[in-house]
Design a protein around this nucleic acid. Structure first.
Lengths: 131, 131
DNA sequence: ATCAAGCTTTACGTTTACGTAAACTTACCC
DNA sequence: GGGTAAGTTTACGTAAACGTAAAGCTTGAT
């Protein structure tokens, strides 16, 4: 299999505009070990994969994950898969996350139904009010 | 329609055990205006609806909502629906929340698929390792 | 040459959501 | 009546995730 390397590089301000976050946040994520840009002189250079990681960080935030949790997810992506023991531990962690996510799916669906009910109720009152 | 009033009452420690949180948290939620228990002397008494609210608070937390956001959801439940203007504003807020939740659904489904991929990959490597 | 734009590090400040401890009241038990 | 179990208020402490200067380097444009 041939690795397709995208040559794209980004400055910190480019990424901050693209994702509508501050450069402070991006540097903070690096501080927490979630990003590892290279340097040109002392200036940070972000690769395509850095950009992907940033997108995943923000997705994690939308889901209420802490940066630490997202970091552990990254470890799952990158983990050493050489020992059976490691693999078993990994799969256990994955199962945990999956059940966590399924709980969230249930929560969201429940809340969506409640909001739909309220909305319908509002709509009814509104039509009787304006008739 | 007949209102069915459940007569159940709970102490703060009962609720803290039932939901596996500290009494500190429960009092904090009250401080933030999300719970309004009655008092017997100076002791807090929680009703059935307080209990339901608490459950909703915790669901909100699982979804990454701040207490403020959850409070605004409560306002939607309780809101004054007498004016058309109010109703319209409410329905706009509901639409916002719904699209927020749909984004989260997409995020979760994407992450679930990624985790499934990793898991499958782990499983394959594991079988080749142990054969 | 200077000057603004964009980058850097360092560091103190802020919000949210509690943790933790102190000091006190009330109720019940032996 | 002394203890202890559960409740209370008050208040300082803390972790996470940044916000917000401050002070300095670099580099292209005027």
């Amino acid at each position: 299999m041939i690795e397709k390397e995208k040559l794209a590089e980004y400055s910190i301000s480019e990424l901050s505009k693209k994702f509508d976050i501050t450069t402070r946040s991006i540097r903070f994520y690096e501080d927490q070990g979630l990003l590892t840009p290279t340097r040109k002189g002392q200036t940070r250079i972000y690769s395509q994969s850095d950009k992907v990681r940033l997108k995943l960080i923000l997705r994690g935030k939308r889901l209420g994950f802490s940066l630490g949790e997202t970091g552990r997810l990254f470890e799952l992506y990158d983990a050493d898969k050489s020992s059976a023991k490691q693999l078993t531990i990994m799969m256990e962690l994955i199962e945990e996350k999956k059940s966590d996510l399924k709980q969230k799916l249930d929560d969201i669906n429940a809340l969506l139904m409640e909001l739909n009910d309220i909305e319908k109720n509002c709509q009814e009152i509104l039509t009787t009010l304006t008739k």
